[in-house]
């Protein structure tokens, strides 16, 4: 019998070398993904599969569940006012940081990035103190300027604004650093040529910076869509966890929050998996739309 040496056999060796990745991917990536498809077709509780549901979990969520569409609406609202707004602030900040005359760049870069590396729970707890209905600093300022106490935690729209503020605060710095990296890859010669041609600052930004930054904008917005659609920690901690389902009128109930509630509080794992797959298709669709928009902007600007 001939012995096969896996490492010296030229046909097999490459597969052996790449196998660790595929084995890990199969166990920790593909298996959970496949299992969640299987789960989503069942009514699955703590004792395992109880009843085969087919696509009923999906149909019920999309047609009759009172919280699913509310969670999606909340998520989209927070995506627009909590995630997309970051880019309108981050791009000018990055341009400012990229300016050659600015002093103390390292300090500003660190200061902007610190919220991103701060523990979500710590930051959220501090925000909950700041926004406390009766004793928070924000209401103190509101009172100072003649306003009345705002019920940040117990009124629908103030609670949404509070969550959006926290998300903006946390991620503007991260986006700023990403855009700064993008800006630094734009050759100086283009700006010099524009300067010689007599272009104004505004023209160089609109004709050079933004068009060449488009791939980075696509990346940043895609990351915001993914992060926004998966938003969980901030509203969960701010609004009081599973027991409140997002607080008054479920104002802080995001799709990921509802997914987690359905899985870990209501222990309906099949339904939670169905939510996860619907979310996946939402994210895919939005990313494709984003791709189309950025591509068309890219073409138009060239």
């Amino acid at each position: 019998m001939t012995k096969i040496n896996l490492l010296s056999d030229k046909r097999l060796a490459p597969y052996v070398f790449i196998s660790p990745f595929f084995i890990l991917f199969l166990v920790f990536g593909l298996y959970p993904i496949g299992f969640s498809i299987y789960l989503s077709l069942w009514r699955w509780t703590m004792r395992g599969p109880v009843e085969f549901m087919g696509i009923s979990n999906y149909v019920n969520l999309l047609t009759s569940d009172p919280f699913f569409w509310r969670a999606i609406t909340n998520t989209l609202w927070l995506l627009v006012f909590g995630s997309f707004t970051q880019h309108f602030v981050a791009i000018p900040l990055a341009i400012g940081l990229n300016d050659k005359v600015l002093k103390g760049k390292e300090f500003f870069k660190t200061a902007f990035f610190v919220p991103y590396i701060t523990s979500t729970v710590s930051a959220t707890l501090i925000f909950s103190q700041l926004f406390d209905n009766n004793f928070g600093w924000i209401n103190y300022l509101v009172n100072f300027f003649g306003g009345e106490n705002i019920s940040w935690f117990t009124a629908e729209w103030p609670a949404k604004v509070m969550i959006a503020t926290l998300i903006n605060w946390r991620f503007i710095g991260w986006n700023t650093i990403i855009y700064l990296a993008g800006l630094q890859s734009i050759p100086d010669t283009l700006y010099e040529a524009a300067y010689i041609d007599g272009a104004t600052k505004w023209q160089t930004h609109t004709r050079i910076t933004v068009p060449l930054l488009m791939p980075i904008i696509f990346f940043g917005v895609t990351m915001s869509i993914i992060g926004g659609m998966q938003l969980f920690d901030e509203p969960y901690v701010l609004m009081g966890g599973y027991q409140t389902m997002g607080g008054i009128a479920n104002t802080g109930l995001t799709s990921a929050y509802y997914l987690m509630f359905t899985g870990w509080s209501a222990t309906r794992f099949g339904k939670a998996s169905a939510i996860a797959w619907i979310l996946f298709f939402f994210i895919l669709l939005m990313t494709m739309v984003n791709r189309k928009i950025t591509k068309s902007l890219d073409k138009r600007s060239l």
Binding site: A155, Y242, M245, A249
Partner: peptide, 22 residues
């Protein structure tokens, strides 16, 4: 029942709605 956690969460929001006058 297995739905108590769901009922409790929904009820909690109803209580908050009444307390805040919404």
């Amino acid at each position: 029942s297995e739905y108590d956690a769901t009922a409790l969460a929904i009820w909690g929001n109803a209580v908050t709605g009444v307390i805040t006058g919404e």
